[in-house]
Design a protein around this nucleic acid. Structure first.
Lengths: 230, 230
DNA sequence: CTTGACTTTCTTACATTGTAAGGTTACCTT
DNA sequence: AAGGTAACCTTACAATGTAAGAAAGTCAAG
């Protein structure tokens, strides 16, 4: 009553870990993770920097929570899905999530402490493969190849200095001109090829490699089944 | 004023970009890239921080040069090598180089400006594939999958909080104990499996995925050849 | 309402970082 | 020796993460 009717100075929504993390993600998405400072983050929440330290021990813990939140965004397979389309879908989802938060890959490398979202994620993937008949060790292999590929691909994709095909053509053109062509004939040829073929698509390239890997896994699984291994 | 005949026993080897870069790499290898500061780097060269700015416009240029130097360490295939063992060898070499300089992966992601070492490297790989009969586009696919895989794999490998099998067992044991097993049955099972199988080897895991990819590429190449595509 | 305990936020301060501006020394050529 | 340039240094500053502790807000019981 009294408190309610008090002067409406501020909506005084209290700071919570969740609000901090989502503000941090928003800020990192916009300005890049390098611009994510304690003061800036606090300001975006209408608060002073040191207030954040009541909810997080240090900046690193905030980064951990951000990574975990990103993982939680990835679509997980339903229980009865076929393993191959399920893996295809989740790889695609992982790629798109990581592209939305390009800072996440770099953070994951440097913050190995897995959170709940991460573990939930991994559990679902492993479960899908196992119930599709993958042995323990083949599951481990599958997990390793797929994730390595996706991380590596997105890491390169998001690090390159262009996003659209036109930008690619520009960059490629620039490289060609400033390069001693006779010294790097193959590289030049390659760049030229994509300079002339600006319909190059990261999405297609991604699927080529992914399907190559999934087909390989299917073969390994078939071999395993015919061996009776478990 | 006083005579300049001070203690001139210093061999006063002049600062060169090369010396700066190799000192920077050494420092990053030892203390981690986060501890690579201008002052620290200068001190390790017996010099003041601002002296570095005579040779490099800013810290970023030093980081670029470090990445390029790391790339130059990777073994390149000889011209007449079979493509498959050549790719296998260079992927292994790339992995070991990146493991020696774990900071390099993160830097590569954030510094897209390729240097001479990088281009030389790429040119050799492309040349090897092309002269093995790979079409332009299949070469691009091959390059993309292989590199994505290697980067992603090493990125995960070097980010994990253990190096040896014993440490793995320790970490796995710790995870098992502090985890609600019934909530993540598959994840727990997986961790337990490796807890009991401490002969797990990153090197082997790496080769499993790599060979899966190389076999897939061989199949694509065979299909291409029988199609007469170029 | 007052009191006091507890939670949440803020103030101040400091060590570290990258680097701009300009000064100082060392070395080479004439 | 003289002068010029290449190499290095001194000083200074703004921005960062965060330690220490003060202040404000919140709520239960007297």
């Amino acid at each position: 009553m009294a408190a309610r009717v008090k002067k409406d100075e501020s909506p005084r929504t209290p700071l919570t870990p969740e609000r901090v993390v989502s503000a941090a993600i928003e800020l990192a998405d916009e300005k890049g993770v390098a611009k994510l400072t304690m003061r800036g983050l606090a300001a975006s929440l209408g608060v002073e920097a040191m207030s954040l330290y009541y909810h997080f021990a240090n900046k690193g813990k905030i980064l951990d929570a951000m990574v975990d939140a990103v993982f939680a965004e990835v679509e997980l397979p339903a229980k009865d899905d076929e393993w191959k389309p399920a893996m295809r879908a989740r790889a695609g989802s992982l790629r798109s999530v990581l592209l939305d938060h390009t800072w996440a890959i770099a953070l994951m490398d440097s913050r190995p402490d897995p959170g709940l979202g991460t573990i939930t994620h991994h559990d679902a993937i492993i479960g899908c493969l196992r119930s599709a008949g993958f042995s323990m060790s083949l599951t481990a292999h599958a997990f390793s190849v797929i994730d390595s590929y996706v991380y590596g691909f997105v890491s390169q994709e998001s690090g390159l200095p262009f996003q659209s095909s036109e930008e690619l053509a520009d960059v490629a053109g620039g490289i060609i001109e400033s390069l001693p062509v006779e010294q790097f004939p193959h590289f030049s040829e390659m760049v030229a090829a994509y300079y002339l073929h600006p319909e190059y698509s990261f999405a297609e390239e991604f699927l080529v490699g992914l399907d190559l890997i999934l087909d390989g896994l299917e073969r390994l699984r078939a071999a395993e089944v015919s061996d009776g291994e478990s």
